[in-house]
């Protein structure tokens, strides 16, 4: 196996991991939006109505961009949204940590009774964010190479 094949294989594995994480995070929240609303409210940043809208839209958005990372037609923008969303999550967790909130993050649904280890959560999201940025950059490079070849 040459280095080019290996790089492509690693890229595929990373892409699958990030996509699977987002899909797995979205499904329980789609099934139980009421519990997710409570998790959103736990962050004490938005009011009751706004948290209901967030709990309704965010899981579907996560699912679409999670699957989208695997679909060539929308994978660049899906990857960009995933990276942006992960940065928002990092900011939210840092804010909750700074305010001393003991809440369940609601990342993968209800996670009843569990409180968040913010350090672990922020580290996980940073790694996922870095991986996503790498995947998006590789996609853009490949896109540019294909465009110049086509000319």
């Amino acid at each position: 196996m040459n280095s080019l094949d290996l790089k492509a294989l690693v890229l595929l594995v990373v892409r699958l991991i990030v996509a699977a994480t987002f899909i797995m995070a979205a499904l329980p929240k789609i099934q139980d939006p009421i519990s997710f609303t409570a998790s959103v409210q736990g962050f004490q940043l938005v009011g009751s109505t706004m948290s209901k809208w967030t709990a309704l839209i965010l899981p579907w958005f996560e699912l679409v961009i999670g699957i989208g990372l695997l679909v060539p037609a929308i994978r660049r923008l899906s990857g960009t949204f995933i990276a942006a969303l992960l940065l928002v999550f990092i900011g939210l967790h840092a804010s909750a940590w700074a305010r001393g909130l003991e809440i369940s993050c609601g990342c993968f649904g209800t996670e009843a009774g569990t409180t968040t280890d913010y350090r672990l959560l922020i580290l996980r999201n940073l790694i996922l964010c870095a991986a996503t940025i790498w995947v998006v950059r590789r996609d853009c490079v490949r896109e540019i190479s294909f465009s110049s070849l086509a000319r």
Binding site: I30, Q31, P33, I34, K52, A55, L56, I57, W60, F61, L63, V64, I65, G68, A73, I74, R76, L77, S78, F81
Partner: peptide, 24 residues
């Protein structure tokens, strides 16, 4: 085009949740 597709798919999902009564 990618943005429109992502928004349309998300909106379809949201509509499904509301119509099926899964989400209030």
């Amino acid at each position: 085009k990618e943005l429109c597709l992502i928004i349309a798919l998300t909106a379809a999902g949201v509509a499904y949740s509301l119509i099926s009564g899964q989400a209030p």
